[in-house]
Design a protein around this nucleic acid. Structure first.
Length: 115
DNA sequence: ACACTGACCATAA
DNA sequence: ATTATGGCCAGTG
């Protein structure tokens, strides 16, 4: 993995969207990939966020969950409850690694922004 | 250059 | 309901 700060292309676009997720809102890997024009590249979004922990530590990566509102990335936040706690601090309710009323807190990335 | 992996997703059986 | 499969594409060995 690259521990550099020179993120190019796809990764940079992912970061650009993630940093726009409003406080208390969440979005999904697939939605980000779709906004980027690569619908099937949802897996790469997670991969980009994985790298982000070496580059951009302020990135609100905890606001990205899978399409079911499941905290699938929790194991990459160090402790097992870290991601959950971060979200709860933003007013979300989580039960069994799933965001309650996920749809109401979902934020759709703006597909139009050029990045 | 090739094979495999991955914080995913949609579809099919 | 669950499992299997293909796609997506950057990174790594």
């Amino acid at each position: 993995m690259s521990h550099k700060t020179d993120n190019t292309g796809f990764f940079r676009k992912v970061y650009r969207i993630v940093e726009q997720i409003p406080y208390g809102k969440v979005t999904t890997y697939g939605a980000i990939a779709e906004a980027l024009g690569s619908k099937g590249a949802a897996r790469m979004v997670g991969w980009a966020l994985n790298s982000s922990k070496y580059n951009l530590k302020n990135l609100p990566a905890h606001r990205v969950v899978n399409r079911n509102g499941l905290l699938t990335g929790k194991r990459h936040f160090g402790g097992s409850e870290v991601m959950k706690t971060l979200l709860e601090n933003e007013g979300l309710q989580i039960e069994d690694d799933r965001i309650i009323n996920f749809r109401e807190h979902f934020w759709k990335p703006l597909a139009g922004d050029k990045l």
